[in-house]
Design a protein around this nucleic acid. Structure first.
Lengths: 196, 196
DNA sequence: TTGCTAAACGGAGGATACCTCCGTATAACT
DNA sequence: AGTTATACGGAGGTATCCTCCGTTTAGCAA
């Protein structure tokens, strides 16, 4: 009687985890191609699960957007962690920003999905905001401590600028434009420019 | 027989124009509150027209987004026109950017709708891009000609930065953040900073 | 292994929203 | 006032959403 079902939780079932993973993969693919309004039944079909399974794991469309997005954010956080070993703080910041641009470049319809879920779910905004802000914050603090950039700009500010720059990413040449903007922005951040 | 119906077009009916206007007003309101996925039947109800009327004027959801958005863009272009009389070119640019932030601040769910339509309809992107680019371009050229800012940044670049900065506009304090970013950006644009 | 049970699966089906179609109403013109 | 092109509105067919529940299966204990 030492293992009453209420007390000791069972190990989660393997098929549940597997199916959850399958649905996430399928969702990423389907939304990237078909945009935010793609059919959820199509996602279930692509994942090879029943529609009921999809809804059990992700009760709303937004939940699904959310789960897909969370993964992406975590990958960006890892990248920031790696860049801490870059010698020049300003260059580390610049390179993270540039890498993020590349990262975003592979998505497409996901941006609209992101816009929807950000609008509806402020908890997710907080989550991703937290992750990304911490990533940027670490890079930023190093650069400020080294006296290389001004200290009145927060990580939130940088994040906002970055996301914004990637926003209109469906026009030709957008990558060049964004990379140029990032340089302007980083220049604007620098101290010791001998201002008049 | 001098007025065959094929040759001489009738004046468009007054009720048609009126209803179109009503639907646009209703759509702006409904999408702002309910987001991009709001029911079109709700829009028709709010406008006081039949669902058929809505669809005749705007065959797809995207067409409706588009029409609403076009108006907004035109208003911004008018603002730029007025600002041409501002004495300091850099200040004119800065003020247009700031005013645009205020302008965006009144919308809400419209941003997600915008993301969708921009993603799907590149013609609209071109239209708004053209309008806004011309607006910014005029302000920018004045400032460059006056030797006040660097000349290797295009109006496209500025537009991209601006839209981006307004992107995450659902977080508290976003306006302060954006206004701060704009100052950084304009600082980054300035020439004659005595670079090391 | 075998049996037991909680957990997960899947898809039928009611509800909702989309969108077309066409009979009715009405503004513009003579 | 009569004529006609134009617009209106909503019924209804279709697609998608999402819930509910009978069936299946993975984990656990003996």
């Amino acid at each position: 009687m030492e293992t009453k079902p209420q007390d000791r939780l069972r190990k989660p079932r393997a098929d549940a985890q597997r199916n959850r993973e399958r649905v996430l993969e399928a969702a990423k693919a389907v939304f990237s191609v078909g945009g935010a309004e793609a059919s959820l039944e199509a996602v279930a079909r692509q994942a090879g699960v029943g529609i009921g399974t999809l809804y059990r794991h992700f009760p709303t469309r937004e939940d699904l957007f959310e789960a897909v997005y969370r993964r992406e954010v975590e990958q960006l956080a890892e990248l920031a962690e790696e860049l801490k070993s870059e010698p020049s703080p300003v260059e580390a910041l610049r390179r993270w920003l540039r890498s993020t641009v590349q990262f975003v470049a592979t998505k497409k319809g996901m941006m609209a999905a992101l816009a929807i879920v950000m609008n509806a779910n402020s908890e997710l905004a907080a989550y991703s905001h937290g992750h990304l802000t911490r990533s940027i914050g670490a890079l930023l603090t190093r650069a400020v401590d080294a006296g290389e950039i001004r200290n009145d700009i927060s990580a939130d500010d940088v994040l906002r600028a970055l996301i914004g720059m990637c926003y209109m990413h469906d026009q030709t040449g957008w990558q060049q434009s964004v990379l140029r903007l990032l340089d302007v922005f980083v220049d604007g951040l620098r101290v010791a420019k001998g201002r008049a």
